[in-house]
Computed example of a mutant assay.
Amino acid sequence: MKVIESGKFTAERAWGALDICVMNGTSCRLHWTDKPYKWHVNDGEEVFAVMQGEVRMHVRSDGDERTLVLRAGDIFHAQAGDEHFAEPVGEARILVIEKEGSV
């Protein structure tokens, strides 16, 4: 059993992660970042929960691009194949649940 105080977690680099657990091939990781990620497509579903901060989630679908603003407590769910990237506004802490080894 463990308790993780997400607001105290930092990493040495953007998108550094604290591995919380792996359950039946699904990883649960806490990320700290102050820089955007890159456009990518996951090979499985992804749950992206903003624990602290604000994140602009950029998504593409059928050639259209839009931006969603996620604040602390908001959750984004991407299906396998959904193209997206996250851009924090300042520092953010994000809980990501996805297939183990997913990019």
Rank of each mutant, 00 (worst) to 15 (best):
M1I: 06
K2Y: 12
V3Q: 11
V3E: 10
E5N: 14
E5R: 15
S6P: 08
G7E: 15
G7H: 14
K8S: 15
K8G: 03
F9D: 07
T10P: 00
T10S: 12
E12T: 12
E12R: 12
E12L: 10
R13H: 13
R13T: 11
A14H: 11
A14Q: 02
A14K: 00
W15M: 11
A17H: 11
L18W: 03
I20K: 07
I20D: 05
V22P: 02
N24G: 15
N24Q: 15
N24Y: 06
G25I: 11
T26K: 07
T26M: 10
T26Q: 10
S27W: 00
S27L: 09
R29T: 13
L30N: 07
H31M: 10
H31W: 02
H31T: 05
H31P: 02
W32S: 10
W32C: 05
T33P: 04
T33W: 02
D34C: 12
D34N: 15
D34W: 06
D34G: 09
D34S: 13
P36S: 08
Y37F: 15
Y37A: 13
W39L: 10
W39C: 11
H40R: 13
H40V: 09
V41H: 03
N42K: 01
N42L: 12
N42Y: 06
N42S: 14
D43Q: 13
G44P: 06
E45W: 10
E45K: 09
E45M: 07
F48P: 03
A49E: 10
A49Q: 15
A49V: 10
V50C: 01
V50Q: 00
V50W: 01
M51D: 07
M51C: 09
M51R: 12
Q52G: 03
Q52T: 06
Q52S: 14
Q52W: 01
G53W: 05
E54V: 11
V55D: 03
V55Q: 04
R56M: 04
M57D: 01
M57Y: 03
H58Y: 11
H58R: 13
V59S: 06
V59F: 04
V59C: 13
R60C: 04
R60Q: 14
R60W: 02
S61H: 14
D62R: 13
D62N: 13
G63D: 08
D64T: 06
E65S: 11
E65R: 11
E65H: 05
R66C: 04
L68Y: 06
V69K: 07
L70M: 13
R71V: 02
R71Q: 12
R71T: 05
A72S: 15
A72I: 09
D74W: 00
D74V: 01
I75Q: 07
I75K: 06
H77K: 13
A78W: 01
A78Y: 00
A78K: 02
Q79V: 04
A80V: 07
A80N: 03
G81Y: 05
E83G: 01
H84R: 14
H84V: 02
F85T: 00
F85D: 01
E87P: 00
E87A: 11
P88R: 06
V89P: 01
V89T: 09
G90W: 05
E91S: 11
E91T: 08
A92D: 02
R93L: 05
R93E: 06
R93I: 04
R93K: 13
R93M: 00
I94Y: 03
L95K: 08
I97S: 04
I97F: 04
E98N: 08
E98P: 02
E100F: 03
G101N: 12
G101M: 09
V103R: 14
V103W: 03
